[in-house]
Write a protein that binds this DNA or RNA. Structure first.
Lengths: 187, 187
DNA sequence: CGCCGAGTTGAACTGAATCAAGAAACGTGG
DNA sequence: CCACGTTTCTTGATTCAGTTCAACTCGGCG
């Protein structure tokens, strides 16, 4: 909860009223490992903030799972295009550990934004912040080699390396599981 | 201008007032080929909509130019993280042809958003739309091979292939210029 | 105790990068 | 408008990183 509010603070300056209003529409929920939060064909109605645990987003390509997002603690996960444009998603979201997530519901958020100019503005700043994060991810993926991306992950999210299975991490980094195994033992 | 308004329409429903207000703060300007719109160390104060021509964004890695964004006609280009967070950018933006661009200035936009709830909302929808586009780009880059990305580019933006130099396209696709030359002559 | 999923390791193969040289296209100034 | 020089593109030969396929190990769990 404290972490969540800190994350908000980074994104937008919230008045006490705005903070209260926002907190009133989000809900905290516990999930078991491997619970599915979104599946293909559904519209993504909820964005999640990981308070505890790990979640991932993936889709299928040629019958194989492709993990393109790993959300460690204090990070968000969601299918944003589907969420914003209200179109069915081709993505799946699931927990990889027993997790505690904060749920941001689309309709509740929209209702909240409609309440006041300040809240509308808050929404804009959230999305702007999200766009920055995504731009960073895109740049990393474009500019870095698999090894560099691995190093980044080790430094920023060592816990993911210890917890998440190798196959998932490999697909996240865009390399085969065997190559990742070799990189790890050692480089 | 018509194209510009159509693009807006896709992103957000604008009342006539909102449309007028928006049009009053953006400006159209002509640029020569190879004009620099943003350079490293500067804060990105402007987002550009390409009415005519082509623009690109790139940065340097190990002394080599890396093009990560190509904006064809009716597309946007900008250094979004820098733009939103008001921090210096490591990126360059330039035209690749004589071009006509619409300029969206940060401070003018912010002033506009402050004017009303509707305009604030419009801003939020713009950014949401931008986030969707970026997510799409990210997914493409993650899931597709160089050849698939090449095919996508050929289909969607044949004009880029004819106009932009091979080295730039290759770096955009994430492959070497030689490989792209071979792919083109033929696959 | 034996099975099963996850990880490791090896060997062969493949696609792409790199290095290098030459051809074509372009523009710039005389 | 031509001639030269620079940039861009192509092509070939070599090298290398990473994939694939396959076998094997390890640890946990029923």
């Amino acid at each position: 909860m404290k972490q969540l509010l800190e994350s908000f603070g980074e994104m937008a300056h919230l008045s006490e009223e705005a903070e209260t209003a926002l907190m009133s529409i989000i809900t905290k929920k516990n999930f078991k490992k491997k619970e599915l939060l979104l599946s293909e064909g559904k519209i993504c109605d909820q964005i999640y903030f990981v308070e505890k645990g790990i979640a991932r987003a993936f889709y299928y390509k040629n019958g194989k799972e492709l993990t393109f997002w790993l959300a460690d603690e204090n990070e968000f996960v969601g299918a944003f295009t589907s969420f914003f444009s209200r179109t069915p998603s081709n993505k799946y979201i699931e927990t990889l550990e027993d997790s505690t997530l904060w749920i941001f519901d689309y309709h509740k958020l929209e209702a909240l934004y409609s309440e006041s100019k300040e809240l509308e503005r808050m929404g804009r700043l959230f999305v702007s912040y999200g766009l920055s994060i995504l731009e960073k991810k895109f740049d990393d993926f474009h500019a870095l080699t698999a090894l560099e991306r691995y190093t980044l992950l080790v430094n920023k999210h060592p816990r993911i390396l210890q917890t998440v299975s190798l196959g998932i991490i490999a697909s996240y980094l865009g390399i085969s599981q065997e190559t990742l195994s070799r990189i790890r033992n050692q480089a």
